[in-house]
Computed example of a mutant assay.
Amino acid sequence: MAELDHLVVGCLSLAEWRPRLEETFGVKAQGGGAHAGLGTHNALWGLARPGGGRCYLELIAPDPGQDWPAEGPTPFGLGLPATQARLTDGPRLLTWVTRDPDAAALLARGPAAMGPLRPMRRGDLEWRLASPADGVPLMGGALPFVIEWPEGPTPSDTLAGSGLTLTGFARRPDPEADAALEAMGLAALAPEGETGGGALRAEIEGPGGIVALN
């Protein structure tokens, strides 16, 4: 039942990198907004899958209109100096997110460090997301975050028709990640492959040609 929900690309400035990615993709972002109380905001692009199905890309950055939360993790560790240092030269593919209607059961088969499900919200959109204690993606991003959407359309559905297709997605071989993903039944969603040295690599094809992210 688990599916690839979205890819998480971090950057330091949405004002700078959203228009640059729009130009690179040849497609305007289709949605996004602020994560109230969490210190971040995002822009979203829908992605078709070659074999059918849909997911999306999230470009997420610190929100200059908010402070970081007083306690608890920042989304994907974006409030931490080490994560921000990774993003100095531009956006990076930080991790991926899988959705499952029974996310708690999925998490029970994975490492405890993936964290418990916590409620989140952006505008009228609500969901639950499991996050590590510090928010930092596990195993360099090879292990996903787990999301549980309420019944009804998800952003993967509402963002359909962007003209962008996820033509490739792979993770760097790692025995520990292999074992965890096999136990959760997720290995097929993030197959081992050539990543250019990073933990993850994605290829997106659209009006701007083929764009690689890692």
Rank of each mutant, 00 (worst) to 15 (best):
A34T: 15
P62M: 14
L57I: 09
G33D: 03
A34L: 11
A85C: 11
G110A: 11
P50Q: 02
M114F: 09
P64A: 08
L47D: 11
P73D: 11
G115Q: 02
A34P: 12
R99W: 13
A36G: 14
R118Q: 14
V97L: 10
V27P: 01
L59Q: 06
G115I: 03
G90N: 04
W45N: 08
H35N: 00
A112G: 04
G52W: 10
N42A: 01
L117C: 11
D102F: 10
R86H: 12
T83R: 05
L78V: 04
P81A: 06
D67R: 14
L44S: 05
G110Y: 02
P62L: 13
G110V: 03
P73E: 13
L47M: 06
P101A: 10
G110F: 02
L59Y: 03
V27C: 08
P81N: 04
G46Q: 07
C55P: 00
G31D: 13
Q66K: 07
D89K: 13
T88W: 12
G46A: 09
G52E: 14
P50W: 02
G39I: 07
P75E: 03
H35W: 01
L59E: 07
L107M: 01
R54W: 14
A104W: 04
W96A: 06
G115W: 03
G110Q: 06
G33A: 01
G31T: 10
A113T: 11
G33I: 02
A36E: 15
P75I: 04
A112R: 01
T95F: 10
W45Y: 06
A36L: 13
W96F: 09
R49F: 08
G110I: 05
G90K: 01
H41S: 07
A82M: 08
P50L: 02
L117M: 09
L94R: 11
G77Q: 07
T74M: 05
A70S: 14
P69C: 07
A36W: 12
M114R: 12
T83D: 03
R86E: 15
D102W: 08
Q84D: 09
Q84V: 05
R109I: 03
T74I: 06
P50I: 04
L117R: 08
L107T: 02
G33E: 02
C55V: 03
E71K: 12
D89S: 14
Q30G: 15
A113Q: 13
V97H: 08
